[in-house]
């Protein structure tokens, strides 16, 4: 019976072997990756080396745009705004997300699924719409926050004043992204094997001690990743201030964040070459910030 085999295979079929298959699987993604990521980057780098002259079109200026950007207070003011924003927004968001994830995971509360899903829902709301909604809520006349404050007999803060603006934007980010991080932590916590829990119940560890001493350390890698992504996201701040600009022209100027600055340089100021240099510099700032964070984390881990 054995040995007849399955030789009936028609020879004309092309069998892709496992050496070239991965490249073929990667090809569509890689093609678009190159066309819409690598090439624009190279192109941006290229134009960042030129400058529009008053007469005679563009000319090559080497790294002049970068030296200019390096000394440009408008860029660094934006960077400072970003860092203030990141230091305000990220710790609060990560902390609340962690606490809520631990609470939901511990199972102490009622209506776990309800809370989990409703906290996540704002993630589905586009940033533009979230910003619109919050800017209505912040509104001095028609905003319910102001209304409530007046009703109670005091004046609500001006949410788009220079003192409050970053807090107001951070609040929008908190509203939108806390739930997303919470879900990720929750999933990571749930993935911890339950026999570990049983072991620690036998140990007599209290629920709180168990959550903070045993479970929390186990999801540290997940936390680090989400923080890195939050840093990257925060430093690219654009949509929220860009829209709030409509109601706070004096507070949010044309270089409030580097991304807004680059946008305005390109489409208002007609200086795409300089804008490209600004964008690259911002990319550098983001890379350095993420790297410094990772370094700090690893330093602590090693100790």
């Amino acid at each position: 019976m054995t040995g007849r085999g399955v030789k009936a295979r028609p020879r004309n079929r092309v069998i892709v072997n496992k050496t070239i298959a991965p490249y073929l699987f990667l090809a569509p993604f890689a093609l678009f990756f190159v066309a819409f990521l690598i090439v624009p980057l190279i192109y941006a780098f290229d134009i960042s080396l030129y400058k529009k002259a008053m007469v005679g079109g563009v000319r090559f200026v080497g790294f002049d745009n970068y030296t200019k950007a390096f000394a440009d207070p408008k860029f660094w003011e934006g960077v400072i705004v970003l860092f203030k924003f990141a230091f305000l927004q990220i710790p609060i968001m990560i902390a609340t997300a962690l606490v809520f994830a631990l609470i939901l995971d511990s199972g102490v509360v009622w209506a776990k699924a309800f809370f989990r899903i409703s906290f996540f829902l704002p993630y589905a709301v586009p940033a533009v719409i979230a910003t619109l909604i919050w800017s209505y809520l912040y509104g001095p006349a028609y905003g319910p926050i102001g209304q409530t404050a007046r009703f109670l007999g005091f004046e609500a803060p001006d949410f788009v004043s220079p003192e409050w603006i970053l807090g107001s934007i951070a609040n929008i980010a908190q509203w939108q992204f806390m739930g997303y991080n919470m879900i990720i932590y929750f999933a990571a916590l749930q993935a911890i094997p339950t026999d570990l829990e049983e072991a620690s119940v036998v140990d007599g560890a209290s629920a709180f001690a168990f959550a903070t001493r045993i479970k929390l350390p186990m999801i540290v890698p997940t936390i680090i990743v989400t923080v890195v992504f939050s840093i990257i996201g925060a430093l690219q701040l654009f949509t929220e201030p860009f829209l709030i600009q409509n109601m706070a022209r004096s507070v949010i100027n044309s270089n409030f964040t580097p991304n807004i600055y680059a946008y305005n340089l390109t489409f208002v100021g007609q200086q795409p070459n300089y804008a490209a240099a600004i964008s690259f510099l911002l990319g550098g700032v983001i890379a350095v910030a993420s790297y410094v964070f990772m370094l700090a984390v690893n330093r602590r881990k090693d100790r």
Partner: peptide
């Protein structure tokens, strides 16, 4: 390739979208 794809996450939107627009 993995490193490239991961690194891509750090690129600010403007750095990509604006040159993409010009192209």
């Amino acid at each position: 390739m993995l490193a490239l794809v991961l690194g891509a996450v750090m690129i600010p939107q403007t750095a990509l979208v604006i040159p993409m627009f010009l192209m």
